[in-house]
Design a protein around this nucleic acid. Structure first.
Lengths: 347, 347
DNA sequence: TTATCCACCGCAAACATTTGCGGAAATGTT
DNA sequence: AACATTTCCGCAAATGTTTGCGGTGGATAA
């Protein structure tokens, strides 16, 4: 922590001389070889304690920090993950990102974030950017009609692990981390059945996505299995605005629904906007149930009952899986994150 | 697009042999020097069209992509920006991040994202990570009691531009991009004065932050300048929960406020939760005005009137400023993003 | 014929680091 | 004293790319 050779201290042109300190600069100051400095800094047993001490002290003094690029070039590792999402500004993804960042940093990894903006071309470009930046692994949630399968196949073959999350490919030869969609939808359906509703408006997302199909099928399966099953009207909405419009139309019909199911936060927002524009009272006139990340439902009065899909948890799981991949090659796995019912006052 | 020498085609062990293609591999295949390949690929005038053609075709065939690390090591540029925020999962920051990603990518930059989690130590660590990753520039929004000034001074001295946004230091020798806080607060104050309110509860954020002080001072200045000024009770709340508690207490007093001003989305959420738990009607019994990113106010019924502070716009501005810095050293600047009033039904 | 010039290309250093190998000195063993 | 072992360290190659500089061969001009 102190006592660098005094003579040395004076002979050194102290801080930033040629700016960033390098192994070479340290080595010439100390009149030893570069490799010795390198080894001393990483406690290689070949180096004497005495030398180590000197080197470390000088390194501290000169504020030496290894040049990541040189290290990466040599070792072919970057300690950086790529993270590709359709959009960043989204309640689910941003909590996912937050979790990944938090977990990754604990293990010394940083994060490069790319958004694909629902554009398969940009998604492909993002994959290339990941390759170009030589990331050690990539997390990706696919855009709807993504067709970059060759691309991530190639990535995988080249030894870069790919972990899919949320919007995942059908192909089970990949690592896939997602919500237990069937379970969540089943839970939602079972819950609403208890309330003996007559007519359900079920707002579903993009029908091209497997996540939508899984949730819908599970939902319908439960409902249709019930003897006194309510009528279910399925409506596919790509975004909040469509959900709002669809809801408004449904509510203005004479035989309006007495329950609305929303398979995502986005759709919930749209539905609520329309409900708020009527005089209908929740839950007396109409009840609402959603699958949600948990933030939005709590903003309304009454708070909306929802089946939780935690982006944060999913993120932590994804990192865990990625780290397993970093240890060495493993068989691909599909992991489902269980969900739970959070009761508000909307039923 | 075709017609690689046929002989060549056969002599090449086609795709991934030693996996990633390099200049060297191309050069040996073609029996020319590495430098020629390098120059051919970047259209250096010294290289004949013929050679260029051959090189490019083979490069395509072998799926050559330059190794970013080697390039960075050589050129000392990474084409990566660092972006440090207190938290990612936040309506303001995530739209900011989205904008920065979008703009940065247009100019060939990628983004490394770090969150400091309101911890000055982690903020310092993040700064170090940026240095370590040799980013070409860093965007940073400070945590409350941040004291990393030496750190970003050092970064700046070492030639890495730093652009502060939102939560910026007092020191005007840095680039600072933020909302026109005075203007926004003044606008909010002037707006509410028209409504002849008696008692205002003003929810303010962390008093340690200059952003809070600026907004508060401007707000109070306008109010106190009015002859029939309403009483203003200032309450500092660090988060949504505190805002909720504070509001609840205020509303339960006999002389309850007839207007609530929230200087941020977070505080608005807390306030609304408490209002919703009463029978008070907005705007008849109590009116609400916020400074907001724009998403939250639209969720309520009636929609909350707010002064907009767009994270998205701020992001675009920040990148623009950063790119100016990339051109060469410039004098530090402070940029204010003007705000506008968005009228809902809460007044 | 010789000087000049241009078009084209290769050599080698440089960037910062890691690592296998080998070597000198010091110490230990007969 | 001769040999073996251990301790400690340096040499040099390797990673992939960029770039200043120098060199070759051919054409044109003097």
């Amino acid at each position: 922590m102190f006592a660098v050779d005094k003579l040395l201290l004076y002979s050194i042109r102290l801080p930033a001389m040629g700016s960033p300190a390098t192994l070479k600069k340290i080595s010439t100051q100390l009149n030893i070889s570069i490799s010795t400095v390198s080894r001393a800094l990483k406690n290689h047993p070949d180096i004497s304690e005495n030398t180590k001490r000197k080197v470390k002290e000088l390194a501290l003094l000169m504020e030496y920090e290894p040049n990541a690029y040189a290290v990466n070039l040599r070792t072919n590792k970057s300690r950086v993950f790529g993270l590709i999402v359709p959009v960043i500004s989204n309640l689910f993804y941003d909590s996912f990102i937050a979790a990944v960042e938090e977990e990754a940093r604990k293990h010394g990894y940083s994060l490069i974030i790319l958004q694909s903006g629902d554009d398969p071309l940009q998604e492909a470009e993002n994959l290339k950017l990941c390759k170009l930046n030589r990331v050690d692994g990539v997390f990706i949630s696919l855009v709807a009609d993504s067709n970059s399968s060759m691309l991530y196949n190639k990535l995988k073959e080249s030894g870069t692990p790919v972990v899919f999350f949320d919007k995942v490919p059908e192909d089970d030869q990949f690592d896939r981390i997602c919500m237990a969609d069937e379970e969540a939808a089943t839970m939602a359906a079972n819950t609403i059945l208890k309330y003996k509703k007559k007519k359900i408006l079920a707002l579903m997302g993009n029908p091209e996505l497997s996540i939508t199909r899984r949730r819908m099928e599970a939902y319908l399966k439960v409902i249709h299995n019930d003897p006194g099953a309510p009528v279910v009207e399925i409506a596919y909405c790509l975004n909040s605005a469509e959900a709002k419009k669809t809801t408004a139309e449904a509510l203005s019909k004479k035989k309006r629904p007495d329950h609305i199911f929303c398979m995502s936060d986005e759709l919930l927002i749209g539905a609520m906007k329309s409900i708020q524009q009527t005089d209908l009272v929740i839950p007396a006139d109409i009840s609402v149930l959603a699958i949600s990340n948990g933030f939005i439902p709590g903003l309304f009065k009454p708070e909306i009952t929802y089946v939780e899909t935690s982006g944060f948890e999913l993120g932590k799981l994804s990192v865990k899986r990625m780290l397993e991949n970093m240890e060495g090659p493993t068989a691909s796995r599909s992991i489902l994150l269980p969900s739970r019912l959070v009761t508000g006052g909307s039923l």
